[in-house]
Nucleic acid binder design. Sequence first.
DNA 1: CTGAAAGCGCTAACAG
DNA 2: CTGTTAGCGCTTTCAG
Lengths: 346, 346
Amino acid sequence: MPSDDRAVTLQDIADRLGVSRSTASFAITGRGRVSAEMRRRVLEVADELGYRPNTVARNLRGARTGMLALRLPPHSTSMAYYMEAAFGAVEEAAQAGVIVFLLTTDPEVDSLDRLPADAVIILDPALDDPVTRALLRGRVPVITGEPVPDGLPAGRGEVTSDHAPAVRELLDHLAERGARRPAVVFPALRNHWAFTVRDAIDSWCAEHGIRPRIAEVPHPAEPAEIQAAVAEIVLDDDDEPADAIIAVSDGTVLSVVTSAQRLGRRVGEDLLVASLVDSDVLALAQPSITAIDLHPREFGRRCARAALAAIEADADGEPIHEVVPVSVQRRASTLGPATDGAPQDG
Amino acid sequence: MPSDDRAVTLQDIADRLGVSRSTASFAITGRGRVSAEMRRRVLEVADELGYRPNTVARNLRGARTGMLALRLPPHSTSMAYYMEAAFGAVEEAAQAGVIVFLLTTDPEVDSLDRLPADAVIILDPALDDPVTRALLRGRVPVITGEPVPDGLPAGRGEVTSDHAPAVRELLDHLAERGARRPAVVFPALRNHWAFTVRDAIDSWCAEHGIRPRIAEVPHPAEPAEIQAAVAEIVLDDDDEPADAIIAVSDGTVLSVVTSAQRLGRRVGEDLLVASLVDSDVLALAQPSITAIDLHPREFGRRCARAALAAIEADADGEPIHEVVPVSVQRRASTLGPATDGAPQDG
DNA sequence: CTGAAAGCGCTAACAG
DNA sequence: CTGTTAGCGCTTTCAG
């Protein structure tokens, strides 16, 4: 029982069977040509010895690292969303024996073009993020979660969600529920998601002859700034008060709901509230909050899959483009108290 | 300008100066003995060529991987907390040129004792988590964020926060603000944090002659389960109603606040609310929510530092033990409306 | 003070 | 069908 501290190597297996390393290697990777019998024996011994291929050494040879770098937006608006997506990517990569590591929020830009990774996944690449820019210029293939905004070099592929229809569906839903004066609290983000959603809102409003009422909050924002924006919309001095409010993140929605309740407005009745990004906590509020479910876990998985594909297709072939479905979760904050007890929920 | 696709290697530098690889290596790592002059020239060329040491190859030799594995609890209660901690670890490790990768939530247990990492960080190790158990039994040194609960083999070190005093401070604060019947919504977690906090609450209550009123919710819980627990406490049929409620995560607190507001209770006035774990969104609610700030970023940094130290001290020396300070953020939900406009906040 | 050479664990030509 | 061999990029003895 070589249960000493050294790791079991191919050599150990080979020695044990009196064959050469390569035979063992071929048997294990299944790549080369070895007899079925030999293969069986190698596998048996490998198992017995508790052999674990050393991924580092394995990848050294192939000029690969067996790693994916993951970049999350510097000031993550929606923690839960990114965390889910991250774990989706980790899971998917793990199935291919690939490791996902996190990039610091603020890495040294010049260390970026020689990243020890076979590909990078950038979630929500933003126009004004120097790291994203450097990564996109670097030699490591880049897959982005959501397209790269115009003005930045394209990556090798992108995974995106069909935001516009979902936003329109949400707006339609609000209208059906009687909303006539919807308002939006929107962060000053310069990424594809923000541009797209904003566009969808604007055009929907135009089609419905409604003046889009958008309170833009800085990003990242101080609590006071968000609270002020929310207060302005909820109060709405100079105009008819908003009868529906859409916000982005857990935090902003929370601010909207609590502010509204404080001011005596009844969420789900005289004020509809919805979020552009779903998260677990939105189902916990009373009333529970209608939101667009971006299926972040699946989104993350697809990003990893795309990244893995980009590594293989190491030429300059077709860029990868994948669309992940999204869905609107209708909950009590827009359905009203009638259905409060049994909101439609996943 | 060798700006072709191949990465710049030590050999390139050596060739350029007509010296050998080892000289270049020594000059760059600063480990060996080379003349100051030679060193200067090597560094210069390295810089010029844009040399980046290949960490993978570098570590191959030393039987190190240059990587830290990070395990987050399978059903993260508090996304923001863990995400912050994770990035703290990533940042700290990056300074030492070490990469932090995420473990899948559900890895194959037998792949765990030969993890391609020099150490593992487990955040909030739980008694009932088989992965934690496997990791602790494995040969990769383990650092835990929060101690390993009794019943599991100890790791090589732990980073912890001084929860008990903070909980007591919070309870004292609530008492000062007039709370007489505090209640707690607590998840059925089997980790050190949960045990400690629960203990602190129990003993504080005992000292103050108060019957601890704890609603335990399953973990992970369905929204309905949490809502039910919250409703029970907020309503409190058979007893005097609670005048202060403590909850753990963003979600539960949100549920408490919105439920309370719906039932006509005024948070910060006739009902005090506080969270055991702070996060950005708690500052956004109206009123903003008092919470214990666990300084997760710093916590994560310390974990990484401890892990790095554990790798060096590869003997069975003293286990590492570090304590990260915590602080109570008093906000409007317990301070009341008087100070609502200017809550004490970081 | 510097160069040659031997590996780290694994893969993949190339022989046999 | 299997063994030999030459590396991947780097570190580190051991000679010179």
